[in-house]
């Protein structure tokens, strides 16, 4: 951009961010009264720069306080507000309303495959159970070093991609194999196993590979790529799963 471009356009002429009307079609379920979930429409006025989360806040704070959803940091780091927006798993706090076709009603549903507790809140325990099973912590033997465990940049790069996971469950709940019976470990657990299996400082890689060699482990992955598409952090999930598969084959066969 040229330097003198702004001088031609005085700041006073800066265009106001437009405001527009949208309809949010939210899947509601209240365990105290409902036997089945249903959809409710909400007309909301949003700013051009608003995110879906801001629209949900408007509903919860000004229109219908009974609407329930999770969110903590609201800036795409805590991983609390994964939901299905127009049929795709996304973080409500990272999705701009203007990007999800605001001309039509925007459907918002809880993530699939996990039991719904209320509205957009699902029971995340089964998800975290799988996560715990792959031992998501550093395992070492021998003396504890007196300084940091030094690692080369190349060694760090080996698993750098999978350290970005925020455990939002967008990937696991986008996986059709997980939807069926919930027995599959799911992409998130495999991604977090990958993070330690390929960490040069860790010594329990073989143990984790053995855990994922289960019939509900990596072999249930059908390389559908839904997880890679759903990941709000841009992790190459399917690639990570393929690397774990290859590691199991080369280390165990």
């Amino acid at each position: 951009m040229s330097v003198d471009a702004p001088s031609k356009k005085p700041i006073a002429e800066a265009v106001e961010v437009p405001t527009f009307q949208i309809t949010l079609r939210i899947e509601r379920y209240n365990p105290e009264f409902d036997t089945e979930s249903h959809y409710e429409d909400y007309e909301v006025t949003v700013h051009g720069t608003d995110r879906v989360l801001d629209a949900l806040h408007t509903i919860k704070w000004d229109m219908d306080g009974s609407l329930s959803f999770r969110r903590s940091c609201a800036h795409g780091v805590c991983g609390s507000d994964a939901m299905r927006i127009n049929g795709k798993n996304r973080l409500a706090c990272k999705t701009l309303v203007k990007d999800v076709n605001p001309d039509k009603p925007i459907t918002i549903e809880p993530i699939k495959g996990l039991p719904v507790e209320k509205d957009l809140i699902v029971d995340m325990e089964p998800f975290f159970d799988s996560y715990r099973e792959i031992m998501p912590f550093l395992v070492t033997t021998g003396h504890e070093p007196t300084h940091e465990r030094i690692q080369s940049q190349a060694d760090k790069d080996r698993f750098d991609d999978t350290t970005k996971c925020i455990l939002c469950a967008a990937c696991t709940s986008s996986c059709p194999v997980f939807w069926n019976d919930g027995q599959y470990f799911g992409p998130a657990a495999i991604v977090n196993a990958h993070r330690f299996i390929f960490d040069s400082r860790d010594e329990a890689g073989d143990q984790r590979l053995q855990i994922l060699n289960d019939k509900e482990g990596v072999w249930r992955c059908r390389t559908v790529f839904n997880c890679t598409e759903a990941c709000p952090r841009g992790i190459e999930v399917t690639k990570a799963i393929a690397e774990v598969k290859r590691a199991i084959i080369t280390r165990r066969v």
């Binding site: 379920y29 365990p31 036997t35 089945e36 979930s37 809880p110 699939k112 495959g113 996990l114 039991p115 719904v116 507790e117 029971d123 325990e125 089964p126 159970d129 939807w179 019976d181 919930g182 027995q183 289960d214 509900e216």
Partner: peptide
Amino acid sequence: STTTSADSNRGPVVTDLTTKSPYER
């Protein structure tokens, strides 16, 4: 949760605290 969801699209239903979770391997 102790709730039941009748929506069959929502995955296995957690019916009771006493029964084993359908997600348990």
